[in-house]
Amino acid sequence: MPNKLMMPGENQQPEKRPGHWLLAQIGKTVLRPGGLYLTNKMLTQLNITTSDDVIEFAPGVGLTAQITLTKRPKTYIAVEQNEQAAEIVRSYLNGDHQTCHINSAQETQLGSEIASIVYCEAMLTMQTSTRKKQIIEEANRLLKTNGRFGIHEMCIIPSDIDSNKQRYIQKVLTETIQHPAKPLTPKEWGQLLNECGFEIEYEAIAPMHLLEPARMLQDEGVIGCFKIFKNLATKPDVRKRVLNMRNVFRQHSDNLAAITFVVKKKPLI
């Protein structure tokens, strides 16, 4: 099972461990900002079928990947640059046409126009502006004409927020989760996708309630929540980090949200 494998960052002290891997190590399986609710909206719009060739960037602990695989796509390729994370991915791949390709999302080394669907979740937020653009352009290169690209990320609202306040929130998030975090506004996400050769077909926003009890119960179920709370009760250093992350999310709840887009590759003129 994936949760029995060593996860990235496990040999780091809790105060320095990236927030998403810290949460995974205490049993959190849903690490996406909009929870299963927004993941399911993205997957519904992508409408994966048995004729699709699917590529997923940075699948992490792989909950979305496992949902995708139940739809029995023609092929599935995970692109993961972390070797430990790749081992987790390999633990749930069980088909002849399911592979994990170790490389970066901005330069996958895969062929052009080989996919009908590409998607990623909670990874573009943690990239620089340049890297965001490179990854989205790589998705465009991998897709056939009219292929679809789905993203599920954190966003800062409203779109006309003061730029200084946006930068401050990005700074606080980075310090809190111990990993670079540069969420964009909904307008900025849309503009970036357009600039990289996509036209928007679907957009939805949800509250960023990743660590709120009601969302956790919805995402993890009673047994999953019990496991998480038990780990928090017995690991005070981890509990301190998690509560600090939740406090920051709550402090900026008026300006933090989750967003998903499903976009279509524009035909070359």
Rank of each mutant, 00 (worst) to 15 (best):
D96H: 09
I55A: 00
E138K: 00
V248Y: 05
S253V: 07
L23C: 09
S91L: 00
A204Y: 03
E10N: 13
Q191T: 09
I102R: 08
G60H: 00
M1S: 11
R241T: 02
R239D: 10
R241M: 14
M42H: 09
I114S: 02
K165C: 06
V79W: 02
V242C: 15
T39S: 13
P183Y: 10
G95A: 13
S116A: 04
V172R: 14
V30H: 05
E199M: 12
N231H: 12
K4C: 12
F249S: 05
T125I: 10
Q134W: 08
T50G: 03
A206W: 00
L69H: 13
L143G: 05
Q218S: 07
Q127M: 14
Y202G: 02
Q166M: 14
I205V: 08
F149C: 03
L211Y: 01
D52S: 12
G197R: 00
M7G: 11
C100P: 00
P158R: 04
N40I: 02
R241F: 09
E220W: 05
L143V: 10
L192Q: 08
D52T: 06
G34E: 09
Y37Q: 04
E80P: 01
E10A: 12
K16N: 15
R241C: 13
Q178F: 06
P2I: 15
V238C: 11
T50Q: 11
K227M: 07
L5Y: 02
I157E: 13
T128W: 03
P18C: 04
L43G: 00
K230P: 03
P14Y: 05
G60C: 01
T128P: 05
I157C: 06
G224E: 00
E137M: 13
Q109A: 11
M154C: 04
H97D: 08
K187Q: 15
I223S: 08
N47A: 14
W21D: 08
N146V: 03
N146S: 11
H152G: 03
Q84V: 04
Q12I: 12
H152F: 00
Y202W: 06
I228L: 01
G9S: 05
M216C: 06
A181Q: 11
A181D: 03
Q127P: 00
Q45S: 10
A24W: 04
K4R: 13
M216V: 05
L93T: 02
T260A: 12
E201G: 08
K41Y: 07
H97A: 15
C155S: 03
K171G: 01
G190R: 11
L63C: 04
P2N: 15
S253I: 06
K71A: 14
I205H: 07
V242D: 14
T99P: 05
I157R: 02
N82P: 00
Q84S: 10
S104T: 12
A105Q: 00
V118P: 03
L69R: 05
G111W: 08
V30Q: 07
P158K: 06
A258L: 04
